[in-house]
Amino acid sequence: MTSMLTPAMTSSDSQDAAMTLWDAPKGTVALIASVDTGLDPQVQLRLRDIGIEPARQLICLQRGPFGGPVVISVADTVYSLEQPIARRIRISPTV
């Protein structure tokens, strides 16, 4: 993925580094910047095991209907995450 980044994209990358997964519009392809370390350790470990950890890629597929959970794909699987957790995952969009 990194090899495909153009300089322009890299700069927008750092600009949007403050974005949380909850704020990502549909279709966003992003690298995970950080996962809140204040989260319950068990939750953090689970997130790590499903591939939600820094430097991994995710795609925002769908905003949940009526403010419901956001739908993302990580590696080969699709997950939905509710707002309180999606807010604590920071991402840097690459597209």
Binding site: T77, V78, Y79, S80, E82, P84
Partner: peptide
């Protein structure tokens, strides 16, 4: 008890 977040595989 600690509240666990909603994470669901589709």
């Amino acid at each position: 008890q600690q509240d666990m977040p909603f994470i669901l595989e589709l």
